[in-house]
Write a protein that binds this DNA or RNA. Structure first.
Lengths: 239, 239
DNA sequence: TCTTTATTGTAACATTTTGTTACAATAGTA
DNA sequence: TACTATTGTAACAAAATGTTACAATAAAGA
């Protein structure tokens, strides 16, 4: 299930019963964060979502929606699973939200029907994103993955599955780099890996492995102001 | 897009614009096979498909559909991707099929609308499956993966993506075992791996690796009637 | 019965990858 | 100038994988 897409009125022009939800990951302060919308009327939080126009690619709908919530273009964005259990169906939160907004919807309102949602996850540079609420939410903010608020419907499950997908694809597709600014130290990269995998890695082995992949380019030294050797800044080389 | 689901009339009781397609893999004669339906009126072949009842889990709909086409229960079945490009939309094949069946559908017929399809892949024991056509197809047969007929819409792409998913999950989830009968030789298992990965493996290393995983149980010797040492039959030990 | 043939199971060694420990280099502090 | 904390990397160990070789053996042929 999902938030109101821009300009969605009575569901005209949109694919019925189908939504998109995005797990937008950021990395800051050695922590993985997820972007969530808040609905004060229900006390619930939700993943940013949207709908698919009748003539629109689903990937494009997802991309546009993530751009609206973050202000970012050229985002790493991948579909990971489609959630279609009937038990997901629970119109109550949406009804409460709509009532609080002043409209008492009829029970056959399109937003109160069963939705199947296509899950995407995005990896963004935390320092560049500008969280932006949608029309019916009260806020859009980052939350620590290990301290999430109570989420609407099965959104906690969606986040869990997104993380599992990320863990598997981390080495294989080198997705982790998408969470860092253009330039980063080896320690920062290692901490991204450690946070996503949920375990500590051996520094020497990690550094050797990363350098052996021939995907890092040394940029400069980074003077940290600390009393020890300055780390190098690296940049991810796109093949 | 997809074939007619059992009892689907005018789309009532089904999720609109949503379909399921299954890439059902079998293994026989050292070859990977895929189950396809034929529509003689169009000269086209298609993946087995179906629709989702309004109150049904998508996984259940997929499971039932695969059971209808194979006669098998307890199938290895996994969702792998949802295909949602607008360019998939092409009502012509379905219109031709329906016309050939005697009904000239109005152009707003529900089966001629845009569909987004949820892709599943299944791994079945070739020797146990009983291919069964659906109501509007002329046949249901196995086809070699490397010699597929011309397929409807983007079904060739769907098969390609299913194979890629299978290749990645082969080691990780040990999915390959689901393509073999209960008992099999190490050579048969290796040939499943080689066919799926599209490359030859080193026999000694493969055998050592498989045995080291502690997932194989030795059952008996298999007298092949050939003039050489008889191989052992193994069985996959479910944890 | 004995030899031949083709294939299997596995040992032995080589190579590569990963785990572990150690240490020199160094930016700032005392 | 010594001290501290962290980085980069070498060196060795252990584990995993690649490669070669060979004994075991079921059936066919002499």
């Amino acid at each position: 299930m999902s938030k109101q897409g821009d300009g969605a009125k009575e569901g005209e022009g949109f694919m019925a019963g189908l939504a998109i939800d995005a797990v937008i990951f950021g990395f800051h302060d050695r922590q993985l964060k997820v972007l969530l919308l808040e609905y004060k009327s229900t006390g619930l939080f939700a993943l940013p979502g949207g709908f698919i126009k009748d003539t629109e690619d689903v990937d494009d709908a997802a991309k546009k929606m993530v751009t609206r919530r973050t202000g970012l273009h050229d985002i790493f964005l991948e579909q990971f699973y489609t959630f279609g259990d009937y038990s997901r169906f629970d119109p109550e939160p949406m009804r409460a939200i709509m009532s609080a907004k002043g409209t008492m919807p009829p029970s056959d309102h399109w937003l109160l029907q069963r939705f199947i949602t296509i899950g995407y996850y995005a990896l963004v540079d935390f320092t560049q994103a500008i969280p932006t609420p949608d029309e019916i939410s009260d806020s859009c903010k980052w939350y620590q993955l290990d301290a999430l608020p109570v989420l609407m419907q099965d959104h906690a499950l969606i986040i869990k599955k997104a993380l599992e997908t990320l863990q598997v694809s981390l080495d294989q597709k080198l997705t982790g780099f998408n969470l860092l600014p253009e330039q980063f130290t080896m320690g920062e990269l290692q901490s991204v890996y450690e946070t996503i995998l949920g375990k500590t890695l051996i520094r020497a082995a990690f550094q050797r492995k990363m350098l052996s992949l021939d995907i890092l380019e040394l940029v400069a030294k980074k003077m940290t102001g600390k009393a020890h050797k300055a780390p190098y800044l690296y940049r991810f080389v796109k093949k």
